[in-house]
C-alpha cells in the first residue's frame, strides 16, 4: 500500500479550515441547549404534572433514536416546513432555501443535546442533599436564592465530568453535519478523499484532528473543574 504523505499534509491543512465550523456548531449548540435542559431537569425533578411527563417522553425519544436518523428526518422536514410557515402562513418574503445550512445543524444538535444535558443536570441536582435547601431556607433565603447560591454551584461541580462527556459526544456527532451539506472537518476531508481515492489518508487526518480537539476540550474541562471544586479538593488534603 502506498500512503500519500504529501496529500495527507495538504488535507491536514485543508481540514484545519473546517475546525472553526465544527467548534462553532459545538459551542452554539451548547449555548442553546443549556437553558431549556436546565428547566427540563427541574420539571422532571418534581416527578409529577404534565411538564415532567412531557420532558420524560422527549428525553426518552431523543435518547432512543440514532442521531443520524434525527438529522435525516429534520433535514428533510425543516426546510420545506419553515418555507411553508414563512411564505404561506406568515406571508413573509423569506427564502429559507438560501439560508446557511449550519442553522439546521444548530437546530438538530440542540434538540439532541438538550435531552442529554437535561439528564446530566437532573442527576447532578439529585446529588445535592435535601438538607442544603433546608439549611438555606432556615437562614431566610428564598427558594430562588437557595438554588442560585447554594444548590446550583454544588450541582455544577458534580455535573462537570458528565457535561464534558456530553460535549465530547456532541463534538463527535458534528462529524455527521456533512449530511446537511455543512462544510465541517469531515465534509472537507470527504470531498478531498473523493478526488483521488485517497480515502485512508483523508480520514486518518480527520481522526487525528478529532483526537486533538477532544483532548483540548477535556483539558479545558479539567481546568474548570479544578477551579470550581476548590471546596471539594480540600477534602483530600
Amino acid at each position: 500500500m502506498h500512503i500519500n504523505t504529501e496529500f495527507m499534509a495538504e488535507t491536514f491543512l485543508a481540514s484545519l479550515g473546517g475546525i472553526p465550523v465544527t467548534l462553532e456548531i459545538t459551542l452554539v449548540t451548547l449555548l442553546i441547549s443549556v437553558p431549556p435542559a436546565f428547566f427540563m431537569a427541574l420539571a422532571r425533578q418534581r416527578r409529577k404534572g404534565i411538564g415532567s411527563r412531557l420532558a420524560s417522553a422527549y428525553v426518552s425519544f431523543i435518547r432512543g433514536t440514532p442521531v443520524v436518523l434525527q438529522i435525516l428526518f429534520l433535514y428533510s422536514l425543516l426546510p420545506s416546513l419553515l418555507n411553508y410557515l414563512f411564505t404561506q402562513v406568515m406571508s413573509l418574503q423569506v427564502n429559507v432555501f438560501k439560508w446557511n445550512t449550519i442553522l439546521y445543524a444548530f437546530i438538530v444538535f440542540s434538540l439532541n443535546t438538550t435531552a442529554v444535558l437535561s439528564e446530566v443536570f437532573r442527576s447532578a441536582l439529585s446529588t445535592v442533599e435535601h438538607g442544603q435547601m433546608e439549611g438555606a431556607l432556615s437562614v431566610g433565603l428564598s427558594r430562588r436564592q437557595a438554588y442560585a447560591r447554594i444548590i446550583l454551584p454544588q450541582a455544577l461541580v458534580s455535573a462537570l465530568p458528565n457535561i464534558c462527556n456530553a460535549t465530547v459526544n456532541l463534538l463527535k456527532s458534528t462529524s455527521l453535519a456533512f449530511m446537511m451539506t455543512v462544510q465541517d472537518i469531515t465534509a472537507i476531508a470527504k470531498v478531498r478523499a473523493a478526488y483521488g481515492y485517497n480515502y485512508i489518508e483523508a480520514y486518518l487526518v480527520v481522526l487525528v484532528v478529532y483526537i486533538l480537539l477532544c483532548t483540548v476540550v477535556q483539558l479545558l474541562f479539567k481546568a474548570v473543574e479544578r477551579y470550581l471544586s476548590s471546596y471539594k479538593k480540600l477534602i483530600a488534603a
Binding site: 465530547v168 463527535k172 462529524s175 469531515t186 480515502y199 480520514y203 486518518l204 481522526l207 478529532y210
Partner: peptide
C-alpha cells in the same frame, strides 16, 4: 473515545 464512529467506519471500509 475521541473518534467519531463514521470516520472509523470509513477508514476501515475504504482503508
Amino acid at each position: 473515545r475521541c473518534i467519531p464512529s463514521i470516520v472509523l467506519l470509513f477508514i476501515i471500509y475504504y482503508g
